[in-house]
Nucleic acid binder design. Sequence first.
DNA 1: CCTTGAGTTGAAGTGAGCTTTAAGTTGCAG
DNA 2: CTGCAACTTAAAGCTCACTTCAACTCAAGG
Lengths: 148, 148
Amino acid sequence: MHESLTIGQLADRSGVAPSALRYYERLGLIRAERTGGNQRRYARTELRRVAFVRISQQVGIPLEEIREALDSLPAARTPTPDDWTALSQAWRERLDEKIRLLGKLRDDLDSCIGCGCLSLQRCKLNNPDDSLAGEGPGARLVLPRPSA
Amino acid sequence: MHESLTIGQLADRSGVAPSALRYYERLGLIRAERTGGNQRRYARTELRRVAFVRISQQVGIPLEEIREALDSLPAARTPTPDDWTALSQAWRERLDEKIRLLGKLRDDLDSCIGCGCLSLQRCKLNNPDDSLAGEGPGARLVLPRPSA
DNA sequence: CCTTGAGTTGAAGTGAGCTTTAAGTTGCAG
DNA sequence: CTGCAACTTAAAGCTCACTTCAACTCAAGG
């Protein structure tokens, strides 16, 4: 038991529930071999994939986009650290941008809340170009969402 | 027509859909008077409440918590700028914390993705104490969510 | 061999935050 | 006073990211 992991072991090691792991597999985020009895067996490298998924979620990236990113990893060989680093580079830019926007929100917060402006429309806090928008789930047309 | 606003006018000015405004009202986030014909009429100060709701959402605060915060505003008189500033102070702390955590995530990202660690459990990126967790919607036990 | 815990599936449920729909009422411009 | 856009409601629908359930099957220790 150190070549491959059962779903329970992967769950314990990753901190992600088995049901979530099965869900991720359905979405194509991770993959598993099967035993003769149809049970999942995970290569240890899947642990890294799961880690990447969780980190990406914390950056506020939806699973579908994470899947697209993971699809860019070489399928033939086991991804090298360099592959992973390349992948995380784009995320890092999003992270930087998010941090920048939150900083702006913070700087604007007191002045805008305390000011006389009653219009979100003109308010710099609601400027679409500066929006932190377009994050998560839910059924909306255009609007922002909470995030990590 | 500059004493009170119709729902359409508030929607236009706030950038929030009428359906969302009605939803906010059901949750107790905003209030409206009614005309003889049962249509909503909003005081201009409601614009500020809507602004506060949207800003708070960008900070990653769920509507229920936003409601609790808004409930702390004086009901009797129209809230002063000072009232709003006091209210936003707590949010500002959350914002600072969020920014700090995202910064840490960013600093750890390359090193952890590039490193040999395969365990989210021990990895500083997944340390519960450092978690960006507990954000948004969805049915989960413990886990983080995307955010602004 | 037998029991028991761990794993399997598909389908349905959950929760946040809305939107959409249906069926009707109001308000104001012409 | 008529016509039409804007409003009203309750209920149902939607997305995301999962969890829970029911009904099994598998794997391994005693």
